[in-house]
Design a protein around this nucleic acid. Structure first.
Length: 878
RNA sequence: GGGAGCUUAGCUCAGUUGGUUUAGAGCGUCUGCCUUACAAGCAGAGGGUCGGGGGUUCGACUCCCUCAGCUCCCACCA
């Protein structure tokens, strides 16, 4: 088959992806083979492909294709996440564009729009992944909010509730007084803001609610909250405030008596060392309140106005109240001083309103037992993190895990299956019917109209933590007595998970918990953490910076294989990736190199009767050995998830060794034919190289593999087995490397001196280079013949134990040469002394592992040989 | 403030119980080449006292201490 002069990825990629799909090559069903399973980290259903996805899914695809070629039953489950907050925001924005406000809609109406939107725009990203070559089992595509998986989520909630691990509690949330909604921590932007620091006098009570003349000074930025104070807190170690212990103070203006309490949370050297504790309006104060059993008094409403509870300034906006109360305090003589102060204030990302910390009822899942077990899975080695450093992070978090707040004040998501009776009590069941039944047991008079389901939905992670289980058998989560279906039994646990370290707690840890709880087994064995993709200046990819390339444009321009390779080139696990388009160019160049190498080989005329030249025979032998050795290296890299190392080893084997050395050595002279034996070997090597690189570059390898021989319909490189390493002779490879160094040396001499080979070069090699490699040197260095003796000055190289002498009148400075050799001799002798010192240590010889001692002995003998060779060259120089 | 990690060539990074690497790779740079697969290429070359200082050792990029700079995670200071 005639190849076009240039590789054209866009022509090739669609063709082969369609071919793979048509033949169902990606699809997996349980069979007798060993499974290799990956579940995709489900992208947001509303998401579009960005560079982070490219990195993550390329790695996943490399692993899955490698496993497939290794003969495993490879299954990669794709799917999307309903991503409640992100999706709901997008739908709200879309509706706003249509002139519809969310507040004007009922829940049902809103959800109707949301589903329409999901059907229309959702899942684009899955189509985009195909452009990248992702070999997902599309027949198994899942969505976290599809009916079956929703059922799994609801069952899980009911299960944990009945187990007593889910409870309703009060928690501080970020309240947006303009949007009238709680927002997540991620949606709060902290900005340093100019404000004031009010130093106020709180008078000590005489015990009957009357002020004495003694007072303490408390500093705050929020004087409008003093009416909600529950205590004043000092550090127990603070000598200045020892006299206060057990006393009570009066809140200014309203003269309410509150206790002095002690807590080490208070910093002694900040402010006055006295902290007013306002549990309802500050997160930390709330925590202190819990520890000291303080009452919680809420004086700010949904709109940020003071309530009746405040007693004064009722109905005023919090900021107006702040000004007014400052004035009142001043007039009442309670202000010591007011300082200018800059403090970080949280603003709502959406409305830019100042966030008000506010207590609200939420649902929680207890973490103590779940996290203990999940920690053990990693600590005991059932799950490995790559890189290992994340174990520390993981341990630290798991040991301090807070209970998981699983409720969200949104509509898009799985609605919490708690049903309230008119009296405020509630029942938890997985359906309305069951809930009604349960409610009737409490109160037989209850009717369907009386029962109201909780308005909140569940945190998105409460569905994605079930992902490795629910994608196979949605009946399983929440029902540990259920017998796993055949898919779950076969594919679970999955093998590897590739994800970002930013969701180690949100997702990875919780999947481990769910796996332990419902399957009694970990959900995966290895977690490969990628880095964050940044631009080449190290900045995060962002829309506003405009530094985030569209992966589809890149694929269009360079080809998917080039993009994959470019992404992998710089992707050592865990460290951030500084993306640079030049890496993708490198990928494209590599495609061109592969393409052209086959153009060369496929264009040769073969003469079956021709004798194999000596240089070609040695080249074949060498490359065969090197290929085997590289395969071993590559396998080792893969086993340690060093994907970029595996790639680089293959890249160099293909480009440097195969193209630059091997092909040049076996290439027939212009117009001549190649002998049959060499040709056969060359084609065989090429096919093995294609298979080796296929997991990384699926398209070009399929194209060339199909082009290099007649293939039948249904055949594919995807299911060819990974080339196996044969026996290889390290000594021979080393000898060949010496020959290569000699060649490079000779070329260097010629380049520096600008002389032609014929003009001056004759070469003398002394030492122990295999004589059969001489033709290799002759051919590659373009030397007509060797001369056995030299006359006059010469260029001398020492390559390993071989002395190479290139005679050249007036070229080399013998003194320099001598000095070099002497310096190396000194180093070698010193080194030898060290090694001998170690070997002379009886302790070392007796206790070190045998192979370590053997290495030392080898070093000793090598050093001796080297010294001998150097001494010989020195003598020869003189 | 608590925790983790990083600092090696112009850039991005390897460096595997301290030793045959008196420091490696890719890219970039420089020099010479349109040589009949490939100029998206070929053949060469240069480039680092391994962040600073100290210690242990026959020997330190590697282990210990210390200082400096950077990054991330958590908690954020009334």
């Amino acid at each position: 088959m005639e190849l076009s002069a240039k590789y054209n990825p866009s022509e090739v990629e669609d063709k082969w992806y369609a071919y793979w799909l048509k033949n169902k090559f990606f699809h997996s069903e349980p069979d007798a083979r060993e499974p290799y399973t990956i579940v995709i980290p489900p992208p947001n259903v509303t998401g579009i492909l960005h560079m982070g996805h490219v990195l993550n899914n390329t790695l996943n695809d490399v692993l899955i294709r490698k496993a497939r070629m290794d003969g495993k039953n490879a299954c990669w489950i794709p799917g999307t996440d309903h991503a409640s907050i992100a999706t709901e925001n997008k739908v709200v924005a879309k509706l706003k564009g249509m002139g519809i406000s969310k507040e004007d809609l009922t829940r049902e109406e809103f959800l109707k729009y949301a589903w329409e939107w999901k059907e229309e725009h959702g899942g684009i990203i899955l189509q985009q992944l195909r452009k990248l070559g992702a070999s997902c089992d599309w027949d198994r595509t899942r969505f976290t909010m599809e009916p079956e998986l929703t059922e799994a989520v609801i069952n899980t909630f009911v299960y944990f509730y009945k187990k007593g691990w889910i409870y309703r509690g009060v928690r501080m949330v970020n309240w947006d007084p303009e949007g009238h909604t709680a927002v997540s921590d991620d949606e709060v932007i902290h900005r340093d803001t100019q404000s004031h620091f009010y130093h106020m006098r709180y008078f000590i009570s005489d015990g009957n609610g009357n002020p004495t003349d003694k007072y303490i000074v408390v500093a705050t930025t929020r004087p409008e909250t003093i009416m909600a104070d529950a205590a004043v807190c000092v550090n127990p170690a603070d000598e200045r405030h020892k006299w206060l212990h057990g006393k009570k103070v009066l809140i200014p203006l309203i003269n309410k008596e509150i206790p002095i309490i002690e807590d080490s949370y208070v910093e002694m050297d900040f402010g006055t060392g006295c902290l007013k504790v306002t549990p309802a309006h500050d997160v930390n104060d709330y925590e202190i309140g819990l520890r000291h059993n303080l009452p919680v008094l809420n004086i700010i409403d949904d709109h940020g106005r003071l309530t009746e509870e405040a007693q004064i300034l009722v109905g005023e906006d919090r900021f107006v109240a702040r000004e007014k109360i400052a004035k009142m305090l001043q007039e009442a003589g309670n202000i010591e001083k007011i300082e200018d102060y800059i403090s970080p204030i949280g603003y709502s990302e959406r409305t830019n309103a100042v966030i008000e910390p506010r207590l609200s009822a939420q649902w929680f899942l207890k973490m103590d037992e779940l996290s203990e077990c999940a920690l053990a899975s990693v600590e005991d080695g059932f799950i490995k993190f790559i890189p290992d450093k994340y174990r520390n992070t993981y341990r630290h978090w798991m040991e301090n895990a807070h209970d998981w707040c699983i409720s969200r004040q949104l509509w898009w998501g799985q609605r919490i299956p708690a049903y309230y009776l008119p009296d405020g009590s509630f029942v938890v069941e997985n359906s309305f019917e069951k809930a009604l039944e349960a409610a009737k047991k409490i109160n037989p008079a209850i009717t369907a109209e009386d029962l109201h389901q909780d308005e909140d939905v569940l945190d998105t992670w409460f569905s994605s933590w079930l992902w490795p289980i629910s994608v196979f058998d949605p009946q399983m989560p929440g029902q540990p007595d259920h017998k796993p279906n055949s898919d779950l039994a076969y594919y679970y646990p999955t093998n590897d998970l590739v994800t970002g370290p930013d969701i180690i707690f949100f997702w990875v840890a919780r999947m481990i918990m769910a796996g332990n709880e419902f399957m009694n087994d970990v959900p995966f064995h290895n977690v490969y953490f990628t880095g964050i993709v940044r631009d080449k200046l190290g900045r995060k990819m962002s829309k506003t910076l405009g530094n985030s390339p569209n992966p589809l444009d890149l694929i269009e321009k360079y080809g998917a294989d080039a993009v994959r390779l470019g992404m992998l080139l710089c992707s050592s696990a865990g460290s951030d990736i500084l993306y640079d388009e030049s890496q993708v160019e490198q990928g494209r160049n590599f495609c061109g190199k592969i393409w052209n190498s086959w153009r060369l080989v496929s264009g040769w005329n073969v003469d079956e009767n021709a004798a194999q030249p000596a240089a070609a025979a040695e080249a074949v032998k060498w490359f065969d050995n090197l290929l085997s050795r590289t395969i071993v290296t590559v396998e080792d890299h893969y086993s340690k998830f060093r994907i970029s190392d595996a790639l680089m080893a293959t890249y160099k084997l293909f480009w440097d060794d195969y193209c630059s050395w091997y092909l040049e050595l076996v290439k027939p002279a212009y117009g001549e034919a190649i002998d049959g034996a060499t040709y056969k070997a060359t084609v065989c090597f090429f096919e093995k190289l294609l298979k080796l690189i296929h997991p990384i570059m699926p398209f070009i390898t399929e194209e060339l593999w199909q082009a290099m021989a007649e293939r039948k319909e249904g055949e594919t490189i995807m299911f060819q087995s990974t080339p196996k390493a044969g026996e290889y002779d390290n000594e021979f490879i080393a000898q060949f490397e010496l020959a290569q160094q000699i060649i490079v040396g000779v070329r260097g001499v010629r380049a520096q001196k600008q002389i032609s080979p014929r003009e001056a070069l004759s070469l003398c090699i002394e030492g122990s280079l295999l004589p059969e490699l001489l033709p290799v040197i002759t051919k590659s260095a373009n030397i007509s013949e060797f001369v056995q003796s030299t006359e006059g000055p010469a260029v001398n190289f020492i390559v390993g134990t071989i002395k190479v002498s290139v005679p050249l009148a007036g070229f080399v400075n013998a003194d320099e040469e001598k000095a070099k050799i002497l310096a190396e001799l000194e180093h070698q002798r010193k080194f030898l002394a060290g090694v001998r010192g170690k070997l002379g240590n009886a302790n070392f010889v007796a206790h070190a592992p045998a192979n370590v001692v053997a290495v030392e002995r080898k070093k000793e003998s090598d050093a001796l040989a080297r010294i001998e060779a150097l001494e010989a060259s020195l003598a020869a120089l003189q």
